[in-house]
Simulated scan of single mutants.
Amino acid sequence: MTVRHDDLRVTWYGYATARIESEDGTVAYTDPGRYGVLTGEWTPPGGGNPKEAAHPRATDHRPMDADLVLVTHDHHYDSAGIERVAADDATVVVYDGVDPAGIERDVKPLKDLPFEVVRVDETDHVAVDGVGDVWSVPAYNDPDGPHANDDGAVPHPKGLGVGYRFTVGANDTSVFWPGDSDALAAFAELDASLFLANISGSVCMSGAEAAALADRMDPDLVVPIHYNTQAFLEADSASFASDVAKRGVPVALDESAE
């Protein structure tokens, strides 16, 4: 299934991979790859039936059609995934904190990617020709927040990653992808038409926290992603959608990409 919003078509392929295409043919991806979601190898946690999972079925997806690729942090950096989706003339925006040399997976150095790579800090603004504007925002778990251990240790400390507020298409439709983060108060100040909500809970905002954030942000549409790919990302997307809808915010689930 593909969700339509304004002049955009939004498709979730699993994990943090979302494809956003405008009517003028501009294509952007968030954090493409990992866990077999783009290679057709993903299976639900516990070996369940992919057709019954609240998650897109895996697909062997190599369109190489992206004009823009956004990478939020080390956990979501997958050079092979980027190469599957990026067009030859793509711009790949990568947070400065991403360090392939420190990633314990088989990934390429950024310098070996055959695309224009733009590094950004926590509060950068980049204008990508032919695509739109990209704003980076700090994204993290608060050591005093709900996803911290008793000693304040968190899976995503400040400085590890960012979220992105970006625009796509002739209408400059705005999209917000927070990456892996708590539902930070600063996010509610962002003007975003489409909120790609991260609802997995254990390592970032939960469904209830994301729904409360959506209420404060008041976007035109919420589409949740980054859940149920692995056991530690388990979430009840139906309950999340019901919670958001009761708050008067439009919401759509995209759990059947092919």
Rank of each mutant, 00 (worst) to 15 (best):
1 M>D: 15
6 D>V: 06
8 L>C: 03
8 L>E: 15
10 V>R: 11
12 W>L: 10
12 W>I: 05
13 Y>K: 03
13 Y>T: 04
15 Y>K: 04
20 I>M: 13
23 E>P: 01
23 E>H: 12
23 E>S: 15
24 D>Q: 06
24 D>G: 03
25 G>M: 09
25 G>Y: 08
28 A>C: 03
30 T>M: 00
31 D>N: 02
32 P>T: 01
33 G>K: 12
37 V>K: 01
37 V>N: 05
39 T>D: 14
41 E>S: 07
43 T>C: 04
45 P>N: 09
46 G>I: 00
51 K>A: 04
52 E>M: 09
53 A>P: 07
53 A>K: 06
54 A>K: 00
54 A>Y: 00
55 H>Q: 04
60 D>K: 15
61 H>K: 12
61 H>A: 13
63 P>Q: 05
64 M>I: 00
69 V>H: 03
72 T>G: 05
72 T>C: 00
81 G>S: 13
82 I>V: 12
83 E>R: 15
84 R>L: 04
86 A>F: 02
88 D>M: 01
91 T>E: 00
92 V>G: 14
92 V>M: 07
95 Y>R: 10
97 G>S: 10
102 G>Q: 10
104 E>D: 13
113 L>A: 10
113 L>V: 04
120 V>I: 12
121 D>L: 15
122 E>D: 13
124 D>Q: 14
125 H>P: 14
129 D>V: 12
129 D>I: 05
132 G>I: 08
134 V>W: 02
137 V>D: 11
137 V>N: 13
138 P>Q: 08
139 A>W: 07
143 P>V: 00
144 D>M: 05
148 A>R: 15
149 N>C: 06
151 D>P: 13
152 G>M: 11
156 H>Q: 03
156 H>P: 01
156 H>N: 06
159 G>I: 08
162 V>G: 15
164 Y>D: 11
169 G>F: 03
170 A>W: 01
172 D>K: 11
177 W>F: 13
177 W>I: 09
182 D>H: 00
184 L>P: 08
185 A>N: 08
186 A>N: 07
186 A>W: 14
192 A>H: 11
193 S>V: 10
194 L>F: 07
194 L>R: 05
197 A>F: 14
200 S>C: 09
201 G>V: 06
203 V>K: 04
206 S>P: 08
212 A>R: 14
214 A>F: 07
215 D>Q: 10
215 D>S: 05
215 D>G: 06
220 D>T: 04
225 I>L: 01
228 N>R: 08
229 T>K: 07
230 Q>S: 03
231 A>L: 03
232 F>P: 03
235 A>M: 14
240 F>Q: 01
240 F>R: 11
243 D>C: 04
246 K>R: 12
246 K>H: 11
246 K>P: 03
246 K>A: 13
247 R>M: 06
252 A>P: 02
253 L>Y: 04
